[in-house]
Amino acid sequence: MNKYITASLLLLGCIAYIFLSNDTGSARVFVNLITFAGVYGLAAIGINVHFGWTGLLNFGHAAFMGIGAYTTVLLIPHSLGREGVIISTGLPLPIAIIFGLIASALLGLLLGLPTLRLRGDYLAIVTIAAAEIFRLLVRDFENLTGGVYGIIQFSDSLQVYRPNFVDVISTKYDVSSAQLWVAILTWISIVLVIIILSRLQKSPWGRALRAVREDEDAVRALGKNAVWLKLQSFMLGAAIGGLSGIFLVFNYGTVQASTFVPVLTFYIWAALILGGVGSLGGPALGAIIFWVIIAGTDSISRLLFESPDGQQLAGVRFVIVGLLIMLFMIFRPSGILGKKEELLLDVK
């Protein structure tokens, strides 16, 4: 139970830090932070299915997030960036989201089919490359995706569902109602996904994935189709990533090619490692801590530089996140919520 106490204390500390370090607009900072934390947490849960459950090294999560987001946004009313072409018809959002998730899962299938037969490292290489190819294609197919100018004016499809109480709360605490709505939906999704995954984790399917993670050849020798199990896991994790990508772009209100850069994937990995690979709630907790660190670097930067510019801020962020991951690797490689007995970060 000790680690849950640690986790709770950390969470309380994080919230306290936000409200103590921001004299004005702390509620606004808080909502902004939990929205991003939710999105990253959901994405990290997807990677956790890949890596923590099945041992698949996916370094291209941004592509799964991106294709889910782009598919959804393009299917609902939106306008294309530079020319401002307005497409005012489209599918209802829930259906568009389902298509988005399917698109992510299909990309998983597409990448998985040729690579999952090979050893794990190949998948890592292919996913990195695929994520970059995806981003560059999105940038260059300007007619479809808006390219670097991106897609705008699609948020209404989500905000029309916004219930009244969200507006009441946001007026009272002076926060963005649109963002609060995205945050609420993201965290509801996290809870639902965790419920589904906890069911799967205990099931024969989840057990089979763990067996694949441990030793694929032994899985085959016992009459199980390891490649198919890996594909299923890959598609499930990809779809979860797609869902997080959808929330990410609804949080921004826009989507450009630069939304899904490689560093996004690695931030999500950082959140996963901090929270605990293999645990159900760990990725979400890790994402909160990650985002508090990101927010906290601003005040640390102010100690180091008189008036830090964006580059200096980013530098300090990298240093602190990197240092923290190193410390975790040395002192708590299982992350905050990971099981010590199932230390999952020793890649074979």
Partner: peptide, 24 residues
């Protein structure tokens, strides 16, 4: 080749469970 980070019992369960049960 045993499944190191699974219990002895889980090792056996995995071997014995049917393909149908392991369907998603």
């Amino acid at each position: 080749r045993v499944f190191d980070r699974m219990t002895v019992y889980e090792n056996m369960q995995f071997a014995g469970s049917s393909i149908k049960n392991e369907g998603f």
